[in-house]
Structure formats: structure tokens, C-alpha cells
Design a protein around this nucleic acid. Sequence first.
DNA 1: GCTGGCACTCGCACGGACGGAGTGCCAGCC
DNA 2: GGCTGGCACTCCGTCCGTGCGAGTGCCAGC
Lengths: 340, 340
Amino acid sequence: MAHDERRLQVLRAIVQDFVSTNDPVGSKALAERHDLGVSPATIRNDMAVLEEQGYIAQPHTSAGRVPTDKGYRLFVDRLSSVKPLSGAERKAIERFLDGAVDLHDVLGRTVRLLAQLTHQVAVVQYPTLSRSAVRHLEVVQLSASRLLLVLITDTGRVEQRVVECPSDVARDDVADLRALLGSAFTGARLADAGGKVPDLVDTAPPHLRALVATVSAALVETLVEPGEDRLVVGGTANLARVAVDFPGSLRPLLEALEEQVVVLKLISEVDSGGAVLVRIGEENAHEALAGASVVSVGYGTGDRALGGLGIVGPTRMDYPGNMAAVRAVARYVGQLLAES
Amino acid sequence: MAHDERRLQVLRAIVQDFVSTNDPVGSKALAERHDLGVSPATIRNDMAVLEEQGYIAQPHTSAGRVPTDKGYRLFVDRLSSVKPLSGAERKAIERFLDGAVDLHDVLGRTVRLLAQLTHQVAVVQYPTLSRSAVRHLEVVQLSASRLLLVLITDTGRVEQRVVECPSDVARDDVADLRALLGSAFTGARLADAGGKVPDLVDTAPPHLRALVATVSAALVETLVEPGEDRLVVGGTANLARVAVDFPGSLRPLLEALEEQVVVLKLISEVDSGGAVLVRIGEENAHEALAGASVVSVGYGTGDRALGGLGIVGPTRMDYPGNMAAVRAVARYVGQLLAES
DNA sequence: GCTGGCACTCGCACGGACGGAGTGCCAGCC
DNA sequence: GGCTGGCACTCCGTCCGTGCGAGTGCCAGC
């Protein structure tokens, strides 16, 4: 029906205007700024219906209307097309990310880039260890009974862990241990590492068994268990810019961002199909994020999803633009990591 | 003179009251809350002198007085004694930091601990590479022409760098390279690494010379050059709590914190004698930090300063308490790193 | 089903009045 | 000489009443 169609146009116009002005938008302004072909009075009728359906709300009697979470949801799902990035933006992505010398550098640049493109807080997850494979495993003796394990993954992550051994370890044993662990784990997916331990212990020379058991337990414990996934956060200064959108205080949000677990959960729950995921306001199911939206997507090399990245901002954000930026950056990061 | 003495007591009382209440403090309130032994009228005379000398100011005619940067400076230098930590706080430090498994973990816990103890933004510098020595140097071949250098320092830092070689590298050459670099650099201070390169290249077998030159150049460039020092920042949520102390906006401050260079400079300029350094307001010589104070101290193992740590907060802060916390945490971190 | 008109509601900005806190100064006292 | 109580003055923050403008809902007419 042409009816419903126009009502959706009205909703779209409300979202667009409200996002850009931060003022509740009224029927008159709407009729002036958009070619809806009808008079303010008609728009008012549509707005009344939209309000009844829960897509918009008015902060006070006789102020303009403001989109609700549900309204943004409809907008994102049906009313917006992904805004293509400008040439300048695409150039900026390349310029920014090229020249990175290691994973840490890549992710640091990525988070700064995303923050700059979207003017929101950017979040990038390190490539998940569980989906990475071992490229190299190094054992360094720190002292008689302390060993340092260094794990290098095929995604470029370098992780370390100090292992305290129950008894002193001979120099030769360290070399043997290194060889054993190396041949057992190199090339293996970290997710499978746990299963290899019993076999490895069994086949180890008797005098090394206790050592191998201790060390591989530590390896699996720290490096494979979930929860060890790291996060890079950047652009928190952008929160100050949009402080007006968080009426209470920025504090809960800043706390949630520091409490990486919260955001990590959101970011890592990316769609395996590579679609951009948007979580709006209350959909986030975490109190501190109730007034915020999260736009995230997985990045990866070819068919393998390595991790997630995205942005966090007020629900009043430019969804099409931010979705485009997040998607473009994720693609480029994926390519970059595939090369290395 | 008893005169001047009392005037300083008045200044101290003003600082203490203002820090705890955030209200400009007047002569009457001062006389009531502190046993200065004189009447408000006398205090007023003292305040007039203190104001003339620039230690205090009044926001508006006929409001109370507020300490100036100069007033805080005098307070810190002459009027405050370092507040000893409570037993609970000392316990908290131990509980928080023990059980850390690697350097990353130690510094992460440190920054959270400091933020929690002081309710300010905490900043911890990674141990300076230039003052660290090489414990282990690993070369991993990523592809025919790409090598990954992994450097492990005696302070527990693990740094990585990808090196693009002009031509393909044979497997055996990698092993030789590893042995060469290892024997040349292991145990050496990174600050001296640059000087060792020419010698190393000269003594290398002819067919490896180009490779050694490329790789060691990359090593020195990324890992030894200054500016590569890293920073961990935490507790930015505390800024929201004291937002009232930053009249304009938190933004410049948040930006300065993200722009790690700024803070790094401050934190790394620690006193070699191990004294706690306090920079108040304008003393910071960076616009964004004009309304902020930085309390920092070096941490290290024994006689060697490894890096700095500290806090950033409004000039209106509890200097004695924060100085004590910063110092205590730095000592504990120093011990912890000395053990490993 | 759309439109113009109209009465109504409210939030907000403006402005004046008021009270309170704090000061500076002065004369008197120890 | 230094401290004290008293007093007049200044000025900020708050409160309240008013007016205005934006926006709405409803209704009659096309």
C-alpha cells in the first residue's frame, strides 16, 4: 500500500534528520526538508501511527519525535542502503594501513583508522587464538626452574607465558623440550592442541615426561583457553563529542569498554557469513550499553574468520556510513593479514 | 615567624578542604573546620596576602578561595607529608599483582590497580627497550622472503618485527642467521646494539652479509629506536567522575591520553633518584594537560630504572595519597620484575 | 484520504527579586 | 603590632512568573 510506504519514508526522514541535528523533529520541518509530497497535517497522522507502533516517541508532549530503538532497527533493516565510501576514504584506508610492520601495528592502525572514519569508539579483536595455527613455538630458559614459552601463530600473534617448573631443568632438556613441542604443535590448530597433549606426554622420553606435561598444560591453559582474547580500543575521545547522547554520564560506557569482556563478547559474536551486525540500544543486553549501538563485523583471510572489529557509539549514529566503514576496513584488514 | 607559619597552615587547610569538597572555601568555614586558633577575620587577612602572592584565587568576587597551581605546588613541596598506605591497601597491591604470568599481565594488573587505588587515570610504561638487554633473539621464516624477528628482553618484553628481504632466503641460512644474531646480541644492552652491527656484518660469512645487514638494520630500527616505547592506560572511566573539574570538556584530555606520545614523554621523564615527581597544571607544558596534574615515578629492578608509571587527574586531587599509592605500586612492580 | 485551520500543551529562555556567602575595611582591644 | 568583632557591600545562584515558539491533536471541508 502506498500508505505504509509513505509512513516508512517518514520514519526514514525522521531518523536522518534526527541523526544529523540531534533535535526532535516535527512535522513541519519534515515537510520542508523532504519531498514527501504531502502536508504537515498528513505527516502528523503518519507520525501518530508510527508512535503507536513504537517506532518513534516524543520526549515531551509537544516536542518533535525521536526514533526509538525499534525505529532504528527498522531503519537499518529496511530503510537504509549501505553508503558507498568516498574515494578519499578508500584512499585513507590504504594509506593508513599500508606500511604496518607487524600484527600489533596493523591492529593499532586499524583501530585509529576506524575511529577516525566513523568518529566513534573503535574496537578491534586480536585474531582468535582458537582459530589460529601454530607457526612457531619457542622455549627460553629464564632461570633454573623457569621457562618462557613463546607462541607465534600463523596470524602473526606472538604470545608469551612464563612456566614455573617443579624442579630445575637442564639445558639439554630445554632443547629436547623445544624440539618435542615444536614437532608436536607446529602447524596444528590451537583448538586441537589440547587433544594432542596426552599423546605427546606418552611418547616423550621418560625423564622428560613430567616436564612436558607441566609445560604443555600451561600452554593449553593460557594460550588456548578462551578469555585470553585481546582487544584494542581507540577513539574514546570521540565519546566526549557525543556526550550529549548519554544523559547520565559517560562512566558506565567507559567502564564497559575497559571491562573488555563485555565488548569482546559483542564483537566476537560476528556473523560467520561476513554480514555487518548492528546491535541497537537495549538489544545489547548489557545495562551500560543500553544507550549505545554496536556495529561489528568479522574479518578474516579468505574463508576463515579470525576475529571481529567494530565501533561503539550512541544509538543516534549514522548507521549506513558506519556500516560501510566497518565493512571496508574489515575487508582491507583481512587482505592484509592474508598476505603475511 | 609565627606569622608566615600560620599563613602556610591556612593554605594547607584551603587545599585540603577544597580537594575534599570542591567548593571554594571561605574564612568562616576554615575557622570552623580547622583549629587554627584565630578568628575568621584574621584568616581573611592571611588569605588576602596568600592571594597577593598568587597561591590562591577567587573564582568570583565574594566567593571563597581556590588554590592556584602555584598553591598546589607549595602544598606538595612543603605542606604535605606522604600519607602511609593502609594495611588493606598494601594487601590489595599484593593480592592484585601476585599471580601475574607475564609482563603484559603484570602491567595490565598494575594499571588497573593504580586506577583503583587512586581513582584516577593510570598510566604504565613498558620497560624501556634501550635500557633492556637481549635475552633471546629468534628468527622465524614466514615465507621465502619474509622473516619474523622476535626479541625477548631480560625485562620480559617480547617484541616482534617482520622483515622483508630483497631476495629469497634458504632454510639453512635462517638457522645460520639465527646463530649469528644470537651470539652477537644475546646479553647485550639494546642501547649498544646499533654499534655492534658493522662488526657483525664484517665477520659474517660472505654469502650472508647482505642478509645480516638487512635484518640487523630492521632490528635496530624498530626495536632500538626511541618512540617504540609502549604505554598501558587504564581507568579512563575515572575521568567521568571528575568531569566537573574539567570545565570545557574531557575531550582534549582523552585525546592526549590516546596520543600516547604526550603522556609517554611525561612518564618517562622520571627522576633517576626514585623520587615521586608531580607536575601540576600549567607545569605540564601541554595545552590539553593544563588543567591536569601528573604524578609519576620510575620503577626498576635494583639500581636500574626500567620505565615510569603514574597517574593523570585534575589538579584538584589528593596529592599525598596519590603520591603514596604511585610510589608503593612502583616499588612492588620493581620487585616483581626483578624476580623474573 | 488529504488539507488547512485552530485551540491547546509544554518546554525553554528571559528577567527581576531574594537570600546567602563571603569579602574588605575599620575601630577597638589585648 | 597584631587580633577581633562588627558592618556595609558585592555578587552569585536560585526561584518564580511571564511570554514565546514549536509542535501536536482534532475537526470540518474538499
